[in-house]
Design a protein around this nucleic acid. Structure first.
Lengths: 219, 219
DNA sequence: ATCGCTAACGTACGGTGTATAGTACACCGT
DNA sequence: ACGGTGTACTATACACCGTACGTTAGCGAT
């Protein structure tokens, strides 16, 4: 018991600290490079210490996702339902862009956790108030949610591809090697395809398509 | 030379055989359980033999994805463009449902490969013929593609969750523990949400929303 | 008959998640 | 004041992963 024993003090860890640090690591090094061992090292702790707070890696992922979902702003009121829908969708999108790991966290394991329910509550409330019947509201919620998820994840993937020079080069050469007789339209529209990839205008274009199609459904 | 030497004969492997076997493994054991070592074992070969045909695991994934995309049927003609769009989107969706690993393959690495270009060619051609200008055609293609991808991936994830009893139980208890005062709409619409999750009607609902919104854009 | 090429091999390395068992401290009833 | 107990953390170990490296065996061409 000579106190020379340099054991770490007792309560250095907490779920919040772990989640926060995990998030930082995922954002600085990329989600795929994230590992429990790396996280433990960053926290100055053995890998197994994390298992005191989380049952396994997926459980930690759940917590991080839940934490991120909690950052979503509330739905604005006092504006037409179309604008409320737009606001909710854009909030989710911009959160995903700000925290690229969120896309993979959402893809890996569908809705669960209190915070995910909160965003559903917001969107469903808007739709119900706008006069959608129960079933249409549910369907619309799923449609909007999956659209935001799919298009934003895609955008993030494309951006990541562009950052990896090797992958980007391969993509370009594949594109350019396409025979103009076999793929006339792709070749003709190549400039538009690469110019319009991603970005707010692309996102808003699809979102407005959905909302336009939605209007006849309000009672 | 005495054939007693039990080395495998020479050309047991081929890219096609590897891709086909990899696909079978992914579909029987799940994408996440797939490993190069398992694949090599299935082929009766050492792990490193695969590197003769593929530069690394991602390269193999690319090949599998390309192979799957090649299974898409051609675009029907002689029908209105709306029906052509529906056909293309439904083909992709049903291919993803038939080969669940495709969702993850598409999520993991965006478009690349000849076969992916072929589906783009089909859809873009339809849109151009329908009178969309270049930019709108490109935007619309991206929107439709990401919608199909997002909503079908989501559906597959949900179905997988439902098959894992542990995850499914956790989800149900989370759902049921939601306070009816904090999440009134979610609680009220719980039946609709779980009833309408996934399935062709849900998919077609969103798809028709998009197509409806699209109509004013033809020249 | 021999040589060179290359397909497939074996070995090894550094990494992963996590099961299991152990250890030292903080707290508590006495 | 003190021994017991729970808990927060450590140590060790296992099975598995992708893949870099160097080697070998069988075929086609010479």
């Amino acid at each position: 018991m000579p106190a020379s024993r340099a054991r770490t003090p007792r309560n250095t860890l907490s779920p919040e600290l772990i989640v926060r640090t995990a998030l930082e690591l995922m954002e600085s090094d990329g989600t795929s490079a994230f590992s429990l061992r790396g996280l433990a090292a960053e926290l100055g702790v053995g890998p197994m210490a994390l298992y005191t707070y989380f049952r396994n890696k997926d459980d930690l992922y759940d917590a991080v996702r839940n934490h991120l979902m909690g950052l979503l702003p509330p739905v604005p009121d006092g504006v037409p339902w179309q604008d409320q829908v737009r606001a909710v969708c854009r909030s989710l999108r911009s959160l995903m862009l700000q925290h690229p790991c969120l896309a993979q966290l959402l893809a890996g394991r569908p809705l669960s956790g209190q915070e995910t329910a909160r965003v559903a509550e917001g969107l469903l409330g808007v739709l119900r108030s706008a006069g959608f019947d129960k079933e249409t509201a549910a369907r619309t919620h799923t449609t909007l949610f999956t659209y935001v998820l799919g298009s934003t994840s895609w955008e993030i993937q494309m951006a990541a591809e562009r950052r990896d020079p090797e992958a980007w080069r391969r993509l370009r050469t594949t594109m350019e090697s396409l025979s103009a007789t076999e793929f006339p339209t792709v070749v003709e529209l190549a400039p538009e395809l690469s110019r319009t990839t991603g970005g707010d205008p692309q996102f808003n274009y699809g979102l407005d398509l959905l909302i336009t199609g939605l209007e006849p459904h309000t009672t």
